[in-house]
Design a protein around this nucleic acid. Sequence first.
DNA 1: TAGAGGATTGAT
DNA 2: TCAATCCTCTAC
Length: 196
Amino acid sequence: MNLLPYSFYQRGTVTSIARELLGKRLTTVINGQATSGLIVETEAYSFKERGCHAYNNKQTDRNRVMFNAGGVAYVYLCYGIHNLFNVVTNKAGRAEAVLIRALEPVSGQAVMLNRMKADKIDRITSGPGKLTKALGISRLLNGASLLDSELMIEAGEHIPSKKIIATTRIGIDYAGTDAWLPWRFYVKDNEWVSKW
DNA sequence: TAGAGGATTGAT
DNA sequence: TCAATCCTCTAC
């Protein structure tokens, strides 16, 4: 076990953290059932741009945990159906986060299959709403530490920079020109990246 | 307190 | 291309 320290998250460059999270290992232990996967796709969000819930430092009941110091989870409901999992970054009061969009399953595949009611592991975690379900992440974990026993991120594989693709984010057309920021990162040629 | 809309997904 | 589905935010 080699957990990333709080200092990893509490830096001011959300895009650097989003890039470095690729290849890291996300593990959950929910109701005693352990699952884990390597992060292969992320998106960065910052209070400085319109795609972010905390744009312009707007704080609400929903996004409150984004204003915490980095190293905790921000989980919220999207479209009334999907839980989306974010890693909160930066110092307290600087609302930034990295959305985890896709994972490559490493262990606990049987648990994931059971949760997804699927019979094959293929693409079972390729999308932000799907991976939370597969790993059992719910809003109960909103604000939870990433160094705790239920939710952890460990050092995993190192992804060379030439294998990291930076491109525009998904589903935030309402953000205007900020939607064109190249703040989505994924591992080149990885079959677990979400379709788009 | 009502109405609109969303960092998605899977089926048509 | 579109519906599912419900929480959150904004305006009144």
